[in-house]
Design a protein around this nucleic acid. Structure first.
Length: 928
RNA sequence: GGGUGCUUAGCUCAGCUGGGAGAGCGACGGCCUUACAAGCCGUAGGUCGCAGGUUCGAUCCCUGCAGCACCCACCA
């Protein structure tokens, strides 16, 4: 028999990658093709991205679900891939070009796009390789990219179908314009934040020279585009002026005074300048009153009014000049400080400009109606379910979706124009030409729309485009709808809602049955992790460890605000004086699992991951013990002629309970409880008790050989179950250990990842064994407590006396005394009758049975009296509470009988215990 | 302005349909006990945010208040 040698200390580095390569090389991540299907679509990370804590958390949960379901025998697919991330990727490559003193315009569109593809080929694999380090098990052979040919076909198909259904339109609308990127962005890509600004009160002279109106504005430069002044129709100060007009200063245009409910008479002067081309509210007012929309900006948000002195000025320079000029005309009434919400682009941070341009839109309401219904009728369930409300809130107020972007990297809009400006939406240029020929009777020359689609447009198709849609593939039939989407709340609107809408519309079904929403990973102080705060933790650094100097360098390099570097360095050196040790992937995954409570943000504390690394070590060493015992037997492990001790029966029963709980917790998405359940079972039940008890069994000369064989069998098989229960959380260490114990298992395959997840056999739950072991534990614990409190050497073997014992106690002692003696480090246990005089002792209670430790000269009388008094007072307090309940007639009459009965028996127990301790107290007191 | 969530031990958090307050970490005391000092044994810590209500009984259900966090929103 060869002896498996495990190192004394668990070292994650040496075991992780070899298993991963083996798994992937064997194609074990691919669907089995057998059984009920189970599918998760990975939220495709940006191809430019690198793994951050949020990914690592999310991927841990997905992989856990995938491995669990795979082990449960499902036909399991985890579909991987990346997103082309239009704006982000274009920015990365443009930055490279900038370094070469070039712009994308120097290259031209085709060459630029080629350059992006080249970049993708070289650098696009970063995040997928990092995913492998996390132990993730998606089917890499099916990896997709949103710009792949197939997925691009799906995009065109959806666009054309939407257009044919009248759900896509093009038009000049006010959109959010990013003047740095020179593109429109959607509402969701605009983040408003409060900033300090000013409120300028401007005097607008009335055309009849009878005075002026004061209008308040935060953006005086837009007055160049004013086309009206509005007042509230019921505002008595002004309503006589409605229908009259203003001479707009600086540009000398005559504009009307109109009445509109939108105006709040309480705010400012009660008069509002209306600039339909540069403000969303004013745009609406303009539509109601058929006002002209006068655009005064260009693509850079500089003034575009050739005949004025403002032409070419940036909006902020124009603001200064406008204010100055008005002031010199004595038309500046007042300026006050004012806090306002400033819209900024989520990518660039540039102030977003409402800008009038031609854009493509999806008419969203008809799609939203079905998508709302799917959640209302619980075809799709959110976990936790309060996210339903968030979803409904947005869906019920949804705006048409601006899907065109004025960038180059992305899916080009499949629309072509002829010389006359007719639009042909088609899957290809040939198709467009055919349409044009039909319409015009001749073949015109066409040019394609220059815009590309919002990246989220293709992401919205991900659940079915990756499975081959629009082809009706087998994969689509098998895996669509998918089972669960695992994602963060931040993209419910961006992505989740749109997948639901498009899935129902184009794949004829919801894209997934459940949406598991996880929290945001924050640092130990609850702060969001960000480069500028310098508090970012890299999951790979937690896995591999990192020296302090490297960590500092990483956190302070390439900062947008270099002046923060010093502060960050100081904080980092204080927080991680020794850098970060290597905790390994399994400890990291276990930590994420245990932090996955329902829906709230999680704080990532290094203390947690350290504790879980220790848990790995515990498991590792428990295995060493088990193998030591099993392999020291010349015969190895027998599978027949086994008898099981009460310890075996107990731990086997517990294993069933724990197994059942694991299933329940995974299925209810309570991963925190899953982790906690296994952790406690392994550490407390299996290691602290069962392993210790097994030493007593295996080392006793009185134990039958068949019992010892049964113990060894149980040691190995419970460990086997534990490893399988843990595998979805901690794939590497469980595989490593399992390979070590495999020779002792009766039947098994090549890898733990394809073993069956344990199932609970409730017939094996043995209440009697459980009671017996509880008794053994209680006696041992009582002895330990006395020992510790009386300050007795832990190693010293002590004699123990039992008094006031029942028949059951006697039987148990007879059967299990050797366990108590061995684990409790007890020399001997003797039963005393009531009338027998006990020597000077310290006392503990197990039920009504008194545990006496005769200490002779060792006993400190006062200390023992104090101990007893403490104990008695604790029990008295309990008893008082119970008595109060029982004295309450209402309780007796109205509470359910079982509850009353329980309280009665509790009172009896407490009374008896107190009596025992009182008796003991007077005995000790009587000692001279 | 609207909405959601949170408030339980020093810290981070569990607590299932209302019926004896839990875990991890930390603290304290004792131990290198033949798997593990990344360990073992034991101990102490809580008017469950505040005020009401329902109930025989509330950490749990209802109302109000306070504080914190986040999301959405067009007050110039």
């Amino acid at each position: 028999m060869t002896v498996t040698v495990l190192d004394k200390t668990y070292s994650p580095k040496s075991i992780e990658q070899k298993h991963y390569q083996h798994w992937e090389a064997n194609n074990w991540f691919a669907p089995s093709g057998i059984g009920e299907s189970y599918c998760i679509m990975i939220p495709p990370p940006n191809v430019t991205g690198s793994l951050h804590m949020g990914h690592a958390f999310q991927d841990t949960i997905m992989d856990l679900l995938i491995r669990y379901n795979r082990m449960c025998g499902k036909n399991t697919l985890w579909q991987p891939g990346t997103d082309h991330a239009g704006i982000a990727t274009q920015m990365v490559v443009e930055r490279q070009l900038n370094a070469e003193n070039k712009t994308r315009h120097d290259l031209g569109r085709d060459q630029f796009i080629e350059r992006v593809w080249q970049w993708k080929a070289e650098s696009g694999g970063t995040i997928t390789n990092q995913l492998r380090r996390m132990g993730a098990s998606p089917d890499w052979t099916r990896e997709r990219f949103t710009m792949d040919e197939g997925l691009s076909d799906a995009v065109k198909e959806v666009f054309v179908q939407l257009h044919d259904k009248g759900l896509i339109y093009r038009g000049k609308r006010l959109v959010n314009w990013d003047p740095v990127l020179h593109t429109a962005v959607s509402d969701l890509e605009v983040l408003s934040q409060e900033e300090n600004g000013k409120l300028w009160h401007l005097r607008y002279p009335l055309s009849d020279d009878s005075g002026y109106l004061v209008v308040a504005t935060t953006r005086p430069e837009t007055m160049l585009g004013d086309t009206a002044v509005a007042v509230h129709p019921q505002d008595e100060r002004y309503n006589h002026l409605i229908g009259q007009s203003i001479n707009l200063p600086l540009v000398n245009r005559k504009i009307p005074i109109i009445a509109d409910e939108y105006v709040d008479p309480e705010f400012g002067s009660g008069c509002v300048k209306i600039t339909p081309a540069h403000d969303f509210n004013d745009y609406e007012v303009g539509l109601r009153h058929a006002l002209p929309k006068l655009n005064v900006f260009d693509d850079n948000a500089a003034i575009n009014l050739p005949d004025t002195p403002y032409h070419g000025l940036d909006r902020y320079d124009a603001r200064k000049k406008v204010v100055q000029d008005l002031e010199s005309l004595d038309l500046l009434d007042a300026v006050q400080d004012h806090k306002l919400m400033v819209p900024r682009g989520d990518r660039t941070g540039a102030v977003i400009e409402p800008y009038l341009t031609d854009q493509w839109f999806v008419k969203i309401e008809p799609l939203a109606i079905q998508a709302i219904k799917a959640v209302e009728q619980e075809q799709i369930r959110f976990v936790p379910d309060n996210w339903r409300n968030t979803y409904f809130e947005w869906m019920n107020n949804i705006q048409d979706w601006c899907i065109s972007r004025q960038i180059w990297w992305g899916h080009r809009i499949p629309a072509w124009y002829d010389e006359e400006g007719n639009i042909y939406v088609a899957r290809s240029e040939q198709e467009a030409l055919a349409q044009a020929k039909d319409k015009l009777g001749y073949e015109p020359s066409l040019h394609q729309d220059n815009d590309v689609l919002d990246t989220w447009f293709s992401s919205a198709l991900w659940p079915f485009s990756t499975l081959g849609w629009p082809e009706q593939t087998d994969e689509l039939k098998t895996f669509y709808p998918t089972n669960v989407l695992v994602t963060g709340f931040d993209i419910i609107f961006f992505w989740v809602a749109r997948m639901i809408m498009f899935g129902i519309e184009f794949a004829d079904d919801i894209p997934f049955h459940e949406v598991y929403i996880h929290g945001l990973v924050r640092d130990a102080d609850g702060q969001k992790m960000s480069k500028s705060k310098g508090n970012v933790l890299d999951p790979l650094d937690l896995i591999d460890g990192i020296s302090l100097d490297d960590l500092v360098a990483k956190r302070t390099q390439g900062m947008m605000q270099p002046h923060l570097a010093e502060k960050i360095e100081k904080a980092t050196r204080r927080q991680y004086p020794d850098g970060i040790p290597a905790f390994g992937t399994d400890a990291l995954r276990f930590t994420f699992t245990s932090l996955a409570t329902q829906g709230r943000d999680i704080r990532f504390d290094l203390g947690r991951i350290e504790g879980n690394r220790n848990f790995c070590n515990k498991l590792w060493n428990a295995t060493r013990y088990v193998l030591m015992n099993v392999e020291s037997q010349r015969m190895g492990l027998e599978h027949d002629n086994l008898d099981f001790s009460v310890c075996d029966q107990w731990i086997i029963g517990r294993t069933q309970e724990v197994t059942q709980k694991c299933h329940d917790h995974v299925q209810s998405y309570r991963f925190d409880l899953l982790a906690q359940t296994v952790y406690q079972f392994v550490w407390d039940d299996y290691c602290s008790w069962y392993l210790e008890l097994s030493k007593a069994v295996l080392n006793s000369d009185d134990t039958a050989e068949s019992i010892k064989a049964g113990t060894r069998h149980t040691l190995i098989n419970v460990l086997d179950t534990i490893l399988k229960l843990l595998h979805p959380i901690m794939p590497f260490i469980t595989e490593e250990i399992w390979q070590g114990i495999k020779p002792h298992l009766r039947e098994c395959g090549q890898t733990i990842m394809l073993e069956s997840y344990p199932t609970a056999d409730t017939d094996k739950i043995d209440q009697r064994a459980s009671d017996e072991i509880a008794w053994v534990q209680a006696v041992i614990t009582a002895v330990r407590t006395i020992r510790a409190e009386m300050d007795i050497e832990p190693r010293k073997l002590l004699p123990v006396l039992l008094q006031n014992h029942s028949n059951v106690d006697e039987q148990r002692l007879k059967a299990h005394g050797y366990l108590v003696e061995s684990v409790g480090r007890i020399q001997s246990i003797e039963l005393l009758n009531e009338d027998q005089q006990a020597p000077e002792s310290a006392t503990g209670l197990v039920g009504n049975m008194k545990i006496l430790l005769p200490l002779g000269a060792l006993i400190d009388k006062n200390e023992e009296l104090a101990r007893l008094a403490r104990e008695i007072s604790k029990l008295r307090k309990e008893l008082d509470k119970v008595q109060a309940k029982l004295n309450n007639n209402n309780f007796i009459e109205r509470a359910p009988e079982t509850v009353v009965k329980k309280e009665h028996s509790r009172a009896e127990e407490l009374k008896a215990a107190i009596a025992q301790l009182e008796q003991q107290k007077s005995k000790v007191e009587s000692i001279a």
